[in-house]
Nucleic acid binder design. Structure first.
Lengths: 333, 333
DNA sequence: CTGTTAGCGCCTTCAA
DNA sequence: TTGAAGGCGCTAACAG
């Protein structure tokens, strides 16, 4: 009968059962260690019998590597990219690490959580929103790689991945102009936030290139509700409405259609940014800019891993191309 | 100038700087230890200066508590409940723990990930999908509390939280019947899966109560696309279509409207389950059953914590009431 | 290739 | 209230 204790078996238990030393067991579960085939077999059998797996927590103590990557997300991040955590998790696992999630609701709580984040000795961090400067300082001092996702900071230590908003919005504006847009209203993201500012700036430049005047610019949270309310407040509208993200744009479409009695795209053209699945649904058919999400998450993880392995450089910023997805919401013809 | 090493300061460093022993530093950062006020002050000052926080990883080695709760999610889980991870994370943090996420894509990968999950010595697990029996066995043997989210197993060890599908679907069917439904088509979830079966069973019972015949039942993945395709395949439809979740229902609505030329709810009434935000958008106005998501996540975390603290019992199953949200998609008047 | 020894950072006896 | 000593499970450095 099974009288094994409920506790997890240790390398010592396996060693005893297999008749070898602890170090030998250890070698069996590390890569690049030499071990005679027969001992390996005996150890594996013993481990199997005991349900043994090396305690990675204990291992991390000595290797100074937890193999844990911390991911910092806020509510807004998750709503804009619903399966960001899923994709990041998969990517991190593929890199042989695990994802420890810290859910935060702003830079202030981020600062408060900092000691706790450090206390878990994560190997690296991926931040889904702009972290407070203090956090970046600490990371730099402790040499903890940190990648800002869709954000940027010039502190010299943090890396970033994001989209080439300039090129993306230039393509969008070119399309709008070709389709007959002559005057834009803009619902930008929250005033704070680098993405928001970057997108707005890029849009302004693109509009200037085509001599497309921007009538009004308002700021709103990255949500359907905020978009709907902002649109109502903006009425009467110009012939085209550019939104900082798709959630806002969907709210804008419903505001136009159900609150203002406008027809899309006959009365007004509307565009978003992110290419969320809902935008493809027939009632919306939203023209938008698709971020290469897979590539962004993969790159973010890779940048961390490269630094951990001594290959990558800190302070590196990578931009990926977004692609224009033209759908019915801007097709006047 | 700051010549401190990039590595994290240790209790030894703090002890040296404060002129006390390591044990004293340790006591300073634990609760319920007695310490003279002046030493506490000196230690806190030293810790502050060094940016010290106790290494929780090391602590967990000796306390046998990692304060980490593992969360197992699959793609389907996340799509059905986009901010489940967010809510769980917040709840877990509120309980003083951290969330380690394992993203899996099915029972088989779950089995493969098992040693790795164990290797991190999580204090408890929350599973967003039906875990393989082997995993439940191991948890039971190791006394690792595990809570199944919207799932159930009678292995005697695992706990579960979920919705009272019987009551919920009875309420829905009562509403449908009162609104003139006379015959139902059903798009159930994937054939496997306890939720799927439980909801279908509950629906059948409720329908029987009202002498409402169920014309046809098909199975589909929990997604918009699957719902849309299933609906097209189902045509011609009965007067009412009940879907296993909202994503399917939204796909069904668009299939009816854009592929089959039906008007909702004049030609057909459609209902979902989950109350995702998109269902409230004007083009859909979906009647659905709202799960008390906050309560579910809070309960899940609480059940884990209670067991960790020796209070809760294993093998406990809790059902929360879902509430009927009536919107336009079933309002014939 | 293998075993021995020491120590990662912390907490927990035990004595003082 | 405090310090010294030992050990959590593992890996690294060294002998053999």
């Amino acid at each position: 009968m099974d009288t094994s204790p409920p506790r997890q078996a240790t390398s010592y238990d396996v060693a005893t059962l297999a008749g070898v030393s602890q170090s030998t067991v250890s070698r069996c579960f590390r890569d690049g260690a030499s071990l005679s085939p027969d001992k390996r077999e005996r150890i594996e059998a013993a481990a199997q019998a005991l349900g043994y797996a090396p305690n990675k927590i204990a291992r991390s103590l000595i290797t100074q590597r937890s193999n844990i990557i911390g991911v910092l997300v806020g509510e807004a991040t998750v709503h804009a990219y619903p399966d960001l955590l899923l994709k990041l998790g998969a990517e991190i696992q593929a890199a042989g690490r695990r994802m420890l999630v810290f859910t935060l609701s702003g830079p202030d709580t981020a600062a408060a959580a900092l000691p706790d984040i450090l206390a878990y000795h994560v190997d690296g961090l991926i931040a889904g929103f702009a972290p407070p400067g203090q956090m970046l300082d600490v990371c730099a001092q402790r040499r903890i790689p940190i990648v800002l996702y869709n954000n940027i900071s010039d502190d010299g230590w943090s890396c970033s991945v994001g989209c080439d908003d300039t090129a993306a919005l230039a393509a969008l504006v070119a399309h709008l102009h070709a389709n007959g847009s002559r005057r834009l209203d803009v619902i930008a993201g929250p005033g704070s936030g680098a993405v928001s500012r970057s997108r707005l700036q890029a849009l302004r430049e693109a509009a200037a290139t085509y001599d497309l005047p921007i009538a009004r610019t308002v700021h709103a949270a990255y949500s359907y509700e905020a978009g709907r309310i902002a649109t109502r407040a903006l009425a009467p509208l110009a012939d085209t409405l550019v939104c900082a993200n798709d959630a806002i744009a969907l709210g804008a479409i419903d505001a136009c259609r159900y609150d203002l009695g406008l027809s899309i795209p006959l009365d007004i053209a509307i565009a978003g940014y992110d290419n969320i699945p809902e935008g493809a649904w027939p009632p919306y058919s939203l023209t938008t800019l698709a971020q290469p999400l897979e590539m962004l998450t993969r790159t973010a993880v890779r940048m961390i891993v490269e630094q951990l392995e001594g290959a990558g450089a800190s302070g590196e910023h990578r931009l990926m191309p977004a692609s224009l997805v033209v759908r019915g919401s801007t097709r006047l013809g």
